[in-house]
Design a protein around this nucleic acid. Structure first.
Lengths: 214, 214
DNA sequence: GTCTATAAATAGATAGAC
DNA sequence: GTCTATCTATTTATAGAC
């Protein structure tokens, strides 16, 4: 039993658990304040460890963020799979459901596409992170393809609008834009799903008339 | 001629111009680093004035941000009007064009819905700011109403999806999500306009079949 | 593996000189 | 109207004790 945390409900992290605890606390901090306000010192403080302790496990702030991002990518993909499963058989509903899953995940867990694909982390060449983003997008492309029944180019366009809209809800939520309109993330997630349905419906329709065509 | 800035191309701000110069430099800083990284000290530094100088004109950081936000709301509304005018007669195109205007404005000027409606600024009770956001949304609602030809509730839904998507492009752009895909804001603005057209088309269509209905 | 102590940067904000 | 000087707080990161 390599631990001694029994001295209190939130005992200190003595041996070997700090790395995982840092990542978990980082999610909380990101959810509360976003990536820009994220700091190693704040994570350490809320775990009750010294500000120096994290540097035993991560060389700097960005490597900690990268570890969070890599785990977020894996978790988010799981939420996507679950959401599609729960949505039933209709490919349109399976696709749209991932917008809700995104808003709920990024809204409560704090790490979404902004963290997972953050440009700041590019220079790290973190293998775990580099390999984590692709399966996420591939899954969405696959669901879009099945919902749309058109070529890969159209699917990519749909996924882009879909992802951008879902992230837009999270971003504006975090900035307080919806503060006076909605209570929580769950309501916004439903709006995002409705938005994706609308988007899909719009892409199945032919454009009314390209300006200037006969 | 109450000034003495002739000693250099970027001379110091001696009398009376500092307030306006601070607001203008704040736009630049917001465009480069976003609201979270905004600081009074950085604005002062890039103007070549002391960090104390801004406090002669604004009591604190938030009041400076509020002044920027109020001006941004006015400017953004002008961009909306121009974009709708340039889009021609088609109400759908007039509405969709505002998505492009938003992405270009918020992407290059740095202050969009996130700044204009920032929850942080709520407690200020700044009259200029409080009155600036509403005309912006009213204009969009009006254009949506004309494009959609349905009730005010449907227009509100459309505007929300429209605004959220446009802001999503700006937010993900700023985080580096599109860094490897697009060169600049102009390309993203076009994608946002295309997205709004799709959205509008989707809202004109009846839902295929509400689950469980005959 | 974690701690204390420490360093240098940066930020917000104020007092008082000019 | 702007400056210098100053204070306090925060963050990143390192060195060395336990």
């Amino acid at each position: 039993m390599p631990q001694g945390a029994g001295s209190g409900p939130r005992g200190r992290y003595h041996h070997g658990e700090l790395r995982a605890a840092l990542i978990e606390a980082s999610f909380d901090l990101l959810a509360e304040s976003g990536l820009a306000a994220f700091s190693v010192a704040r994570v350490a403080r809320r775990l009750g460890v010294s500000t120096a302790a994290p540097y035993r496990h991560f060389p700097d702030r960005d490597h900690l963020v990268a570890a969070v991002a890599a785990q977020a990518a894996v978790e988010l993909r799981e939420r996507f799979v679950e959401a599609a499963e729960e949505a039933g058989e209709d490919p349109a509903e399976r696709f749209a459901a991932t917008a809700g899953a995104y808003v709920r995940f990024a809204g409560t867990r704090g790490a979404g596409f902004d963290v997972i694909f953050a440009a700041e982390l590019d220079r790290l060449h973190d293998d775990a992170l580099a390999g984590a983003g692709r399966p996420l997008m591939d899954l969405l492309l696959d669901l879009a393809q099945q919902a749309l029944g058109q070529g890969p180019e159209a699917s990519l366009t749909l996924v882009e609008h879909h992802v951008v809209a879902a992230h837009g809800y999270v971003a504006l939520h975090r900035e307080g834009f919806f503060a006076r309109r909605y209570e929580g993330v769950a309501a916004l997630a439903d709006r995002a799903v409705a938005g994706s349905r609308t988007l899909l419906r719009g892409m199945r329709e032919p454009p009314p008339r390209p300006p200037g065509s006969p």
